[in-house]
Design a protein around this nucleic acid. Sequence first.
DNA 1: ATCGTTAATGAAATCGCTTTCATGAAAATA
DNA 2: TATTTTCATGAAAGCGATTTCATTAACGAT
Lengths: 336, 336
Amino acid sequence: MEKQTVTIYDVAREAAVSMATVSRVVNGNPNVKPATRKKVLAVIERLDYRPNAVARGLASKRSTTVGVIIPDVTNIYFASLARGIDDIAMMYKYNIILTNSDDAGEQEVNVLNTLMAKQVDGIIFMGNHIDDKLRAEFKRAKAPVVLAGTVDPLNETPSVNIDYAAAVEETVTNLIKRGHKQIALALGSLTQSINAEYRLTGYKRALSKAKIAYDDSLVYEAGYSYDAGVKLQPVIADSGATAVFVGDDEMAAGIINASMESGIDVPNDLEVITSNDTIITQITRPAITSITQPLYDIGAVAMRMLTKLMNDKELDEKTVTLPYGIVRRASTKSVD
Amino acid sequence: MEKQTVTIYDVAREAAVSMATVSRVVNGNPNVKPATRKKVLAVIERLDYRPNAVARGLASKRSTTVGVIIPDVTNIYFASLARGIDDIAMMYKYNIILTNSDDAGEQEVNVLNTLMAKQVDGIIFMGNHIDDKLRAEFKRAKAPVVLAGTVDPLNETPSVNIDYAAAVEETVTNLIKRGHKQIALALGSLTQSINAEYRLTGYKRALSKAKIAYDDSLVYEAGYSYDAGVKLQPVIADSGATAVFVGDDEMAAGIINASMESGIDVPNDLEVITSNDTIITQITRPAITSITQPLYDIGAVAMRMLTKLMNDKELDEKTVTLPYGIVRRASTKSVD
DNA sequence: ATCGTTAATGAAATCGCTTTCATGAAAATA
DNA sequence: TATTTTCATGAAAGCGATTTCATTAACGAT
């Protein structure tokens, strides 16, 4: 026995008004006599009528749903952005269709297409790399796209980020000031622009300002995981580096734990700085000095921008750069 | 200039067939002559036609979307389940509408209702407590609901879990065997059934089997966070407990770090065991002994069950209990 | 009392698809 | 060859809302 669904038509009949009037009441259209509104609301209550969002979406061409593409929900960094996105979305009565892309180009294009098929009103994209294929998809999408915590070197798509290059430059410069000459850089793949075109750039800038020769044997492409950090540690140890900047907190934790366990003291033998200031940085011992990012806000601001675009409003600025900070913890030596 | 959308009607016209035939081709209905199929596919390709999932949903009464209610995406435990859910969902061509509930009853009911309004075909619910209000909502929903990593003491709703009580009983029994008499229990709120009716039960069972009197001053209701653990640590220290079972990994990390920093050695002065075997347990020093749960699988199995229910199939078992394990790490002493 | 406005409502088209049913053609059976 | 089945297809009726347009009622203003 299927549960019977109550439609707007049922309400109209019971209330002895037209569907149009019921629709007006439901949508808060002011053009309804108070008495009529009251009558309709009573029927809605009595029948327990709930508007069908799908039908509404078809008729109005707005689904009040936005697509969110995330590399992996279990990654705390992106999950934090997602939380910001969802909170603001909810505030504006949107829902989130969340899909994991694993940062894989093909998969990203796929989910983008299924999201478009679902008629999402907008899309928030998170990932480590934007290529031409993706840009092309963004363009043909009729829904606006905003990048969160994700850089497009060509700046074609609205985005919210921090200044990754400047942040890395500043931290590396700090290390140099404290006497380090051999500073390793542990990143994800250099095919990803956030690494190749931002973090690496900041690193090189710091070196060049200090007149230190760039040595690419100190730059490592590892994965973004704890185990990747553990595996990378002996390599860093062999390189003679006395400090390392790491692109991911879990990887940094792996490096720190593996170092300490092999007798290399952090920070005395190796100083470690990481990028995302997730809870991980507080949990390790020593705790990890990190660039701080307003993770939640990056997501929240991106979603706010998207709501504007979805309502055909102009954006104040297409590329929003939120402030970053640096928080010193025990994985680096104090300056004094 | 709005982007023009191509509809099934356009395809039908161009291919000189009826909409019905195009629909059959798109949906893989075998009742189409190969020649016709080919012709239609060519037009679809040429016009770059993408079926509108909203229209399809309205006509077919299936949205191929499932709702997922999660306390907080940034919680690694639940995020891990969510990942399992999404992967299986994708495998079955479903999308996920993800909403954070903050474990708050009112909010949970709200999102449940907006999900139903969106005509989701099914719902996966994660949370720490199921109450009557929620059960009532589940019942009136016309879409099936499955609980993931979430217990319903009344067993009214299909669910996937491990045997929390047995797991706690086993770990606490181990502690007792190693000579502990004062074992603290650090949980979330005792208003939540997973704590009050499962973990606490297991704890009491272990004590009673060992003829140790239950002392409720050793049971603590804290939050599920790192800071909650840090705050709770001095209280545990004062209690004279020599071991503690913790309900959340981040909280356990907080207890461990705070202990070590106040001169209480883990595991020599205090043994610590936690519940969820997330990456956190490997990152702390000492690493944390933990109950192991197949997190991803809990989500994946829940989603598989949901697909069955959505296709009106019978469930082999309404309540699935996945096996748990215990992994010893450095926060407990070896047994020998 | 009359006319121009504005407010309140309903009729009906529309959104883009699925699906039932009818129908004619082709294939299989007698 | 006649008859029954099966196949392939199209016409058209929904699905449950929104929205445009027309219409009538009420309201001021003159």
